[in-house]
């Protein structure tokens, strides 16, 4: 399995934890991104993730390689969900094991931040009122209008 991967099924966290076990490591840090029931004042009932997988996989490997080099960790993995997700499901999982906790924390933080910013992955939220929208895409025009009226 590659260091970064997608899953269309619920993420098997136990087996990911096991894959990072290493007798030379004294620290293990993981991060789970969960589907929460609200966003920007709207009640969220479900999510969809869509990815440009070929490029996201390549960029995901680059992110993990950067973390390994930058923080001197060897064992790092990330799995991101695609498709339809319900509330409370794990949308993204990052795990890092390292000889000491500090580099494990920092590498884990680096990976989730870069994954959110750089990978071509999109999230569509479905709301309790029946609306839906692509996060960061639908309100661009509104934001532009706000800037114009402030200026």
């Amino acid at each position: 399995m590659t260091a970064f991967s997608f899953s269309a099924e619920p993420i098997n966290i136990a087996s990911l934890n096991a894959s990072l076990r290493d007798v030379t490591c004294g620290g293990f840090v993981s991060f789970e991104g969960w589907v929460r029931d609200h966003n920007e004042g709207q009640r969220v009932t479900a999510l969809e993730y869509e990815a440009f997988e070929a490029l996201a996989l390549a960029e995901g490997q680059r992110v993990i390689a950067e973390a390994q080099q930058r923080f001197g960790v060897e064992n790092a993995r990330c799995v991101h969900r695609v498709g339809a997700l319900g509330l409370e499901e794990v949308a993204v999982w990052v795990g890092v094991s390292a000889p000491h906790r500090d580099e494990a924390f920092r590498a884990c933080r680096y990976i989730i931040d870069e994954v959110k910013h750089r990978l071509p992955i999109w999230k569509k939220e479905h709301y309790a009122n029946g609306d839906s929208g692509w996060v960061n895409c639908e309100r661009c025009a509104v934001h532009a209008h706000d800037h114009a009226s402030v200026a």
Partner: peptide
Amino acid sequence: NGDFADWSRPLSTNDAVVFIPPVAGG
């Protein structure tokens, strides 16, 4: 062709182009 590119890069026939909207992983 599967990698990020500059907006002014010249296009060639049979290029595969993807326009990437603002992302929202995680």
